[in-house]
Design a protein around this nucleic acid. Structure first.
Lengths: 347, 347
DNA sequence: CTGTTAGCGCCTTCAG
DNA sequence: CTGAAGGCGCTAACAG
């Protein structure tokens, strides 16, 4: 493994000169610069990340805390991990994956050891112990999914209220008068998860605005319970002609139940999921509101990087006062290309 | 940020003593050990990863190279990333996510800078340039998915031949005589991807062994083309009563087409996917062979760790000779709990 | 415009 | 059983 010293020797200069060529933080004559760069190329030299980090106290690594539910993998987590990695690279950071099941231990370790410069916390819950831990450590952190609005850490989230309202409005605009909104699962609502609560708010708003018959029902994490509930809803009168769904975990089960009831999608029943993964070829079937994963990933990385700057640079430029944290609510959009079919017999 | 020196001062000992308490590589009297540990706890001390790495030349980090297809996210990649992270932690390693679209640049950087001790390459293709790059660097590497059998790097893969053969055998055993095997997409077969080729082999073997009418057809990456092909296959005579599917990317489209043809699953047509993601509640509908993600992840991390040991420790213990690399073919299993329905009118 | 040097925090010989 | 010292590779402050 070549070191900066080897390069210096080979180029006939001092080690610091090599360093300056690399960092560009000092004027270097064209000749020596070329000699140094030749030596670097010939030796295949790469600066040691550990030495840099030791000196500079910056690792250029972000840690991503992925939430885990034992025995239930959520596709959305993997998707975010990859998009956040891309976003981090675009800011010059690498991404370390924290998947511990044991809560906050791994985060403390990574923060304390200086392995990462900041943390991104995914799918934050109310009362999430990780928030307290990171705040206590004073470690730069950004949240994906808002805990509560004054969680005192920067956060990014899809505007779930607007998303559900938009889906319902568009469905009503297509002519549907009897719509069922299948909200988040009961346990998520009971836990007052942000997306669950705000989704319900959106449904209420849409009901007022459109005047349509919008029946709101919670989902359930158990596929069998959910199927039974869907069966009941489909049998209720007046029969719904559209189903707007926020609980996507069991969407295949839901569709299977619709098919079992002898209903065809979208001729007999329109199904509009809210918060699907983008670029999922297999899912490009239904009119829907996609989770803007790329946009959210970029935003959350930006906030994390800003948090690093605040912690490092002090209050030199126009940072917000300490204690005030930026946040971003992302606006929802209907996925392009598929329109919502009107109900049967609609003009 | 507390250092080892601060701890030493506070405990009234020398820095080296603290280090020994931490590493346990030397006998320390009970009293001083307790004093040191108290000081550590009080100061919230964590050893600096960068300093350790600089000294020891080991970062205790693995890098995972995630394959990218622009505009087409594959859920399986995210799933493996998370499971491999778990597996890495169980071996004392953290996992760095490499998601560059630009080929080998990121890998070279991470290897050269000593950010990681080894690399795991996901979904390796024939002639994958990353294999050559890592071999050239002499950097410890393990492959997930075999390139070709003498790719001269350790690898792990599901036994796709056995998996497809098993699915077809079980389907035939349930009484089905007319089965369609929907293989990988044409472009994957043309590229001679391992899973594609071996899947076809498995179909051939099963046809011989069972004597059933097994029609083999390639899939297509375009959902519309695929749907047309499925329609043709369902209309062919004698009508198939079972569909074994290796190409899962568009499974929802496939099921939608089956429903559009007026066929009910599984009453009119049995569908058996091969290589689904485990723990995917939404998918727990069909009889299937799951991708053993956890098992494969553990195996590939083990191989990566062994590769580090070989590179570091030299040939002290019973490592295989250089140039010979271990590999593991994982045996497939039918997912428990769901049985394959017999065809209509079967005794 | 370039060279010399000290030190980031840790581990591991050596000396006591 | 414990302490002192050197160096891992790099950068930035201080010379020239």
């Amino acid at each position: 493994m070549a070191t900066i010293k080897d390069v210096a020797e080979r180029a006939g200069v001092a080690p610091s000169t090599v360093s300056y060529v690399l960092s560009g933080s000092r004027k270097i004559s064209e000749d020596t610069r070329r000699a140094v760069q030749a030596a670097i190329a010939e030796l295949g030299y790469h600066p040691r990340a550990s030495a840099r980090t030791l000196r500079s106290a910056r690792s250029d690594v972000l840690a991503l805390a992925v939430p885990r539910v034992p025995g239930a993998y959520r596709a959305v987590d993997g998707r975010f991990a990859i998009d956040i990695s891309d976003a981090a690279r675009s800011h010059g950071y690498d991404l370390l994956l924290m998947t511990d099941l044991d809560g906050v231990g791994g985060l403390r370790r990574v923060a304390g050891s200086g392995l990462a410069d900041a943390t991104v916390l995914m799918a934050v819950e109310e009362q999430d112990p990780r928030i307290g831990a990171m705040r206590e450590l004073g470690f730069p952190t950004a949240l994906l999914g808002r805990g509560d609005d004054d969680s005192a850490l920067p956060w990014v989230d899809l505007d779930w209220e607007a998303a559900v309202a938009l889906a319902l409005r568009e469905t009503a605009a297509a002519g549907h008068r009897h719509i069922v909104f299948l909200a988040s699962a009961e346990h998520e609502i009971a836990a007052r998860r942000g997306y669950a609560v705000h989704g319900l708010d959106g449904a209420g708003r849409a009901a007022k605005e459109t005047g349509a018959d919008i029946r709101v029902h919670p989902s359930n994490g158990d596929p069998d319970v959910l199927r039974r509930r869907v069966r009941e809803l489909l049998g209720s009168r007046p029969a719904p002609t559209a189903l707007v769904v926020q609980h996507l975990h069991c969407l295949p089960h839901l569709l299977a139940e619709v098919a079992a009831a002898g209903l065809r999608v979208p001729e007999d029943l329109v199904v509009v999921p809210v918060g699907t993964l983008p670029d999922d070829l297999g899912g490009r079937i239904l009119p829907r509101i996609e989770l803007p994963v790329a946009e959210m990933s970029l935003a959350v990385v930006e906030l994390a990087v800003k948090a690093i700057a605040s912690a490092t640079g002090g209050r030199t430029d126009n940072h917000p006062a300490p204690g005030v944290h930026p946040h971003r609510l992302i606006a929802p959009q209907m996925a392009p290309g598929i329109t919502i079919e009107p109900p049967k017999g609609h003009p």
